[in-house]
């Protein structure tokens, strides 16, 4: 789709706002609707849009295959790691109360990290699945 100048210009204009909106959904999930799952999907949508308009090759330069694979694992490890940190600090698995001085701050920190892990994994998954499908050269 390299010749569609309208699509190129509009998508270039849109992508930063899509990314920004994804981050808003991610970090505002405590107060409004949203959270890791939705934010991850929106974040991935920006990269997929870039891949659709400018080609998978260009998108892979922005986000190499190695990076998505690392992010894929990093998200799950972060989530599970928060649980293990809870055990190490003397609580139960995935017990956020012990993560900070008081229970509420601990819950805030725990939910923040856990949602971040979810978002990372979901975004990396969607990008990986799309690029693997679209990168098939039959």
């Amino acid at each position: 789709m390299n010749n569609h100048s309208i699509l190129r210009v509009v998508s270039k204009f849109m992508i930063p706002y899509i990314l920004l909106f994804a981050l808003y959904v991610q970090f505002h999930g405590d107060f409004g609707p949203g959270g890791g799952f939705q934010a991850g999907v929106i974040f991935a949508a920006a990269f997929i849009l870039y891949g659709l308009i400018f080609g998978i090759e260009a998108a892979r330069k922005v986000l190499p295959a190695t990076a998505t694979r690392i992010l894929l694992c990093a998200g799950v490890l972060l989530y599970a790691g928060v649980g293990v940190a809870g055990i190490l600090l003397g609580g139960n698995y995935l017990d956020y109360n012990v993560l900070a001085e008081n229970a509420q701050a601990g819950q805030h920190l725990g939910i923040f990290l856990v949602e971040f892990g979810v978002g990372t994994t979901v975004a990396a998954t969607m990008v990986t699945v799309f690029f693997v499908f679209a990168g098939q050269d039959f």
Binding site: G29, D30, F31, P33, Q104, Q107, H108, I111, E115
Partner: peptide
């Protein structure tokens, strides 16, 4: 207990 206004998020994540 959680201190987060969005109850859905507290249930989902905690």
């Amino acid at each position: 207990e959680i201190g987060i206004p969005n109850i859905v998020t507290s249930i989902l994540a905690s």
